[in-house]
Amino acid sequence: MSFFRMLGAAALLAATAVPAFADDLPQIRAATLEIGTVNWELNTIIEKGFDKAHGFELVLQPYASNDATRVATEGGEADMFVADWIWVARQRAAGKDYVVIPYSTAVGGLVVPEDSPVKTLADLDGKKIGIAGGPLDKSWLILRAFAKSEYGMDLAAQTEQVYGAPPLIMKTATSGELDGAINFWHFLAKMKAAGMREVASVQDAAASLGLDPDTPLLGYVLKESFLAEHPDLAQALYAASRDAKQLLGSDDAAWEAVRPMMNAKTDAQFVQLREDFRAGIPQPGPVDEAAAGRLLALMAELGGSDLVGTATSLPPGLFAKVE
Rank of each mutant, 00 (worst) to 15 (best):
D243G: 03
S313N: 05
A290D: 14
V199W: 07
A147F: 06
D137F: 14
D79P: 08
D115Y: 07
L248A: 12
Q283H: 13
Q203W: 13
I281R: 04
F270G: 05
D23C: 13
E323G: 11
G49D: 03
Y238Q: 06
Y220C: 03
Q158C: 01
D67M: 05
Q203F: 07
A11Q: 05
G109Q: 05
S104F: 07
I45K: 06
K245R: 14
I28C: 08
L136N: 15
G249Y: 09
Y63M: 10
A311E: 08
L33W: 13
A165K: 14
H54D: 07
D51N: 13
V82C: 04
G95N: 01
P316C: 08
V287L: 07
A14C: 09
T69L: 09
V308I: 15
L211F: 08
K171N: 09
P315L: 00
A10T: 04
D154E: 04
T69R: 05
A78D: 10
K223N: 08
T16P: 00
E229W: 10
V82D: 04
R294L: 06
S65D: 12
A93S: 05
Y238P: 08
L168Y: 06
D79F: 02
A72W: 04
D232C: 03
A53N: 11
E114M: 09
I131G: 01
G219D: 08
A181K: 06
G176S: 06
R259M: 03
S225F: 14
T32I: 15
K190T: 05
E150H: 10
V18N: 02
A94L: 06
L211V: 05
K321S: 14
T37D: 08
S149T: 04
A300H: 12
P167M: 04
S139P: 15
K223V: 04
S149Q: 12
L302Y: 01
I129H: 03
L141I: 00
L248E: 10
G108V: 14
V111I: 07
D306G: 15
L136M: 08
T73G: 05
T312D: 10
K128Y: 02
I169P: 15
F226A: 10
